[in-house]
Design a protein around this nucleic acid. Sequence first.
DNA 1: ACTAGACTAGACCATCCAGTCTAGATAGAA
DNA 2: TTCTATCTAGACTGGATGGTCTAGTCTAGT
Lengths: 194, 194
Amino acid sequence: MHEQIHNREKLLLAARALFLEQGYEASVDAIVGRAGVARQTFYNHFKNKESLFAETAKDCFRDIIVPLEGEPEDLRASLKTFAQAYRNEALSAEGVAAYRTVCSQSPRFPELVREAYEQGFGRMISRLAAFLDKAMARGYLRRVDSTFAAELLAAMALGQERTKRLFGLACEPTDEAAKLDDVIDGFLRMLAIP
Amino acid sequence: MHEQIHNREKLLLAARALFLEQGYEASVDAIVGRAGVARQTFYNHFKNKESLFAETAKDCFRDIIVPLEGEPEDLRASLKTFAQAYRNEALSAEGVAAYRTVCSQSPRFPELVREAYEQGFGRMISRLAAFLDKAMARGYLRRVDSTFAAELLAAMALGQERTKRLFGLACEPTDEAAKLDDVIDGFLRMLAIP
DNA sequence: ACTAGACTAGACCATCCAGTCTAGATAGAA
DNA sequence: TTCTATCTAGACTGGATGGTCTAGTCTAGT
């Protein structure tokens, strides 16, 4: 009775870990083994491997929660907080693995992957764009397409670091603070009122 | 005598197409089928599937040839040419597929993937950084870490478009020219002499 | 005590796959 | 012609995998 949902949780947790580690190739045996659960129990809770993966993937991307609470009074500070949080999320071992696993399955599960992107990253971009829109409305920034600006800031915040991690490059954590300052600075200068 | 290298070429070509389409999961049977060659012929030319993949992957990343020939007199034009060429390369169907396939195999072939990155993308960044260094030396740009600046420009040139393509998002080709101008403009403003 | 539902362990099946092996065809070099 | 090297077609092995099935256990509610 209570056991079922507990096992379901255990399966989702194990699947998440293994999918992130090994990709979709992680075998059902490995997953149930890690969950400490019988094979049949797995097929008791999920239709098949695909549906488990779908649920796991949605989980992974659901919660890119990035703070942008304040009003755009101190634009620089707000953007820096945002960029830092986004970096922490996207460059974490989990974030990188999720990116790799999900994007590698996009040919197999097109709709699922697209949805995951929009629910996770897309929503974050929307919030950031809305924030930038407010800032533009108040005359803090030059008027440009706010979604374009938001996507550009996100790209600048990561630079090539996600790619390097995706490809297994050793990323020495150089004085990140200074670089982030540079990036925010550049972004603001880019969108400064002429 | 001549046949052998011809078959080798055919195998490499077929492998490249299938690996880009289906990832490393593409079966040897499918590859030899597409190459129109017997199974044994494959094992005649390559030790195993891994070594074929290694060669294919190296091929895919060898030639990110991006023009940066000129002297940094007209900085804006040079950078724009660069950015445009890089976009064409990295956002092409092939470029995106190669990125997906190779990065998805980075846990399995760490050294191979790292090498591919460095030989391809890394070299491009080095050249761009050298170019920026020259520009800084002549007083066209503020002095900053040139590699950092090069990586940032590359990131800005793509924005989120590679990610969107990796995740199967429909990318409407908005007025790309204007955006590229904006990006180069922003980059230059970022590094303008104070 | 009995029933029902979820559990476990493990056999089982069909499929696929990488890699080996055999047997015979083809073609150039001697 | 004969030898050698490469080719083809296809059988075969050993192993992994997704999914099903069986038989029996455990527990909660009646």
